[in-house]
Amino acid sequence: MAKLYAKAHHPEEWLEMISLVRDIGFLLVVSWFFWRTISEFRQQFMTRDTRSDSQVDQTTIDALCKLGYLLVVVITLITFLQTIGISISGLLAAGGIGGIAIGFAAKDILANFFGGLTIYLDRPFSVGDWIRSPDKDIEGTVEMISWRHTRIRRFNKNPIYIPNMLFTTIAVENPSRMSHRRIRETIGIRYADLDKMAGIVSAIRDMLQHHPEIDQSQTLIVNFVTFNKSSLDIMIYAFTRTRVWEEYHHVKQDVLLKVGEVISALGAEVAFPTQTLHLATLPEPQST
């Protein structure tokens, strides 16, 4: 009876419009629900991992959330077009030529998109990593990875914005993922201390082998390597246990100070550039 009453008192166009508005409203509510669910998932995951003191892979979380947002938008758009009576297959067929033209015009945008996708899949670096490239003047801390560009903060605090497609063509170093930090120094002593060289090399090697911050499982080299122009050079090659930049320099300072103590204790001195002039004959003194 209610249906007959509605038909008798309302035109069919109004009933169709009401049905269309209802369907679109339901679609928007469902889409908004999934959008909010993704946002809440991201926020809850980040909060939970921060409280548990575990490392949060922000790159992976951002990639999954952005992919979720993209799926919500695409599915909502397709469903909306179907709801208002537009055929998707016909639209795709009609827009084929236009799509090709747009594709050529937006090739850089697409290249950046796939470059960002490569970063998300291969994960050569993550947000918070220190990276640098030997091919380009790029070095700093990764602050953000979007689908179009990556923002890097230089050590002088200036931001640089790198198109993602660039990372598919250049080599990228990630010092944040190094296993150790290396100490590689050349120490020179005087030629006058050649007879003390063997004792100095042995004492420095013994000091490094008993240093608590030097990793003994890695390569450790202390050798007399070169008769240089004004010094006898000793090469020191070792790896620290720490990877932290500030701690590494404290360890390196301690090693160099101990090397200086070893050289002084054996009665030798660190060399500095000097020249010795040999004269075949001495000039006759002039009488006044």
Rank of each mutant, 00 (worst) to 15 (best):
E12C: 05
I18N: 13
L27C: 03
L27Q: 09
L27D: 06
V30M: 15
S31F: 00
W32E: 12
R36T: 11
T47W: 12
R48S: 14
D53Q: 13
I61G: 05
I61S: 05
D62W: 02
A63K: 04
V72E: 05
T76N: 07
I78P: 00
L81M: 06
I84P: 00
I86H: 01
I88P: 00
I88C: 06
L91D: 01
A93S: 13
G95R: 07
G96H: 03
G99H: 02
I100Q: 08
A101S: 11
A101Q: 08
I109A: 07
N112L: 03
F113P: 00
G116C: 03
G116H: 02
L121W: 13
L121Y: 11
V127L: 05
E143K: 15
I145Q: 08
W147L: 15
H149S: 13
I160F: 02
Y161K: 07
M165Q: 13
T168S: 09
N174A: 04
H180E: 06
T186V: 14
G188S: 04
I189T: 02
K196W: 00
A198D: 15
V201F: 05
S202I: 01
Q209C: 08
D215L: 08
S217F: 03
S217E: 10
N223V: 09
T226V: 14
S230E: 09
A238E: 01
R243E: 12
Y248N: 14
H249V: 10
D254G: 07
D254H: 11
V255P: 06
P273V: 06
T274E: 12
T276V: 14
